[in-house]
Design a protein around this nucleic acid. Sequence first.
DNA 1: GTCTATATCCAGATAGAC
DNA 2: GTCTATCTGGATATAGAC
Lengths: 210, 210
Amino acid sequence: MPFLSRPEPVPLPMDCRILTISLELFVKRGYHNVSVHDVQKHAGVSIGSIYKYFGGKEGIAKALYEHLLEEMNQMVDSVIALDLSSIEQCNRIIKLLFEYTETHSDIIAFVLNSKHTEFITDKPPICSSEPFQKIRNIVQRGMDAGEIQSYDYWIATSVIFGAALRMINLRLDGLIDRPLPEFYEQLIDATWQSMEVLDSIKLPKVVSNI
Amino acid sequence: MPFLSRPEPVPLPMDCRILTISLELFVKRGYHNVSVHDVQKHAGVSIGSIYKYFGGKEGIAKALYEHLLEEMNQMVDSVIALDLSSIEQCNRIIKLLFEYTETHSDIIAFVLNSKHTEFITDKPPICSSEPFQKIRNIVQRGMDAGEIQSYDYWIATSVIFGAALRMINLRLDGLIDRPLPEFYEQLIDATWQSMEVLDSIKLPKVVSNI
DNA sequence: GTCTATATCCAGATAGAC
DNA sequence: GTCTATCTGGATATAGAC
């Protein structure tokens, strides 16, 4: 999973420089508090080039959004391809997200923390995008297979990923001051106590949602 | 808890009208996509009055932020005052948040979903504000009392409230299409399976965080 | 004390020079 | 094909009339 991080062959191509700098500025100050001139100054390119490549500020945001979402999509695919149990697939995703929060916080902040609908027109909220759906599908398959306790779809997915996403938020906001991977084992432990069907008590819970 | 909802004595006082309309517009379009003129038009007051009362757009945002946070604070206090167990206090807060998401979605969206640091200068992120700290303190006390399994502070609070907050997000984004209170019982059920110290197995988990 | 008309500024976008 | 100078629109904010 490259996640926008080409191995930096000395000077990055201009379009990639623009994207990298924009991502950094958007995350640090918020999309609306960044002007095209800011990007121009920090990236060391001209206004003309920015409009040539991306057609404007919203164009940059769209390109970033699509690029990063596609990489997230590939990340999820690569986990699905591993042929692990549903539970282990969920864990792997949480682990990767935790690691990326430390090494590529801008990307995680942009994908998980921005309100894209405020600056990208005609895009659904990110949680309805493909990679997020695929992640929820993993949970659904786990429940169908009797591996994960059968709760309502939204409850199950929220319980399994809600705590991890919350911790990512708290980490990005600076409240949690240790790297997230340190918390991984204990979090997984706590999460699955509520959701895993233990062999000893393999009586799936009855679902009732009126 | 009034939560900005005075019982509407026919025509609201002007300052309250401005706040109510602004909240609605900010949540619907995003702070930066709302101009003072928009507020002026929708609220039926003049630009002059807005500047008179609030000194500008950021002034409105600040007033809203402080007002709503204070009401949230009172909500939490009222729950703490009820003298319930820690677990029941947490449940009560989740229940109230779910109910408010249905009846006062704008308020919940503004308090829980906005990136205030992008438009209110010199304010810490909302999760470090008083009511949020108080909520986490409830969890800490529950762990100290042996009522809640002793996990790391951040893990425990994220597991207990992460799923609920996630569901509020999904509901506000339109993915969950049923009222949240319908999910309450089952969510509580799933959450506490992982966190509650049952009388039968009252051996608190060992905490290890290197 | 409430409103309207206006000033000022700055961001997004363009067009033409090199 | 890259940059610079410029245009234009719209937003915040003000000042003066009623």
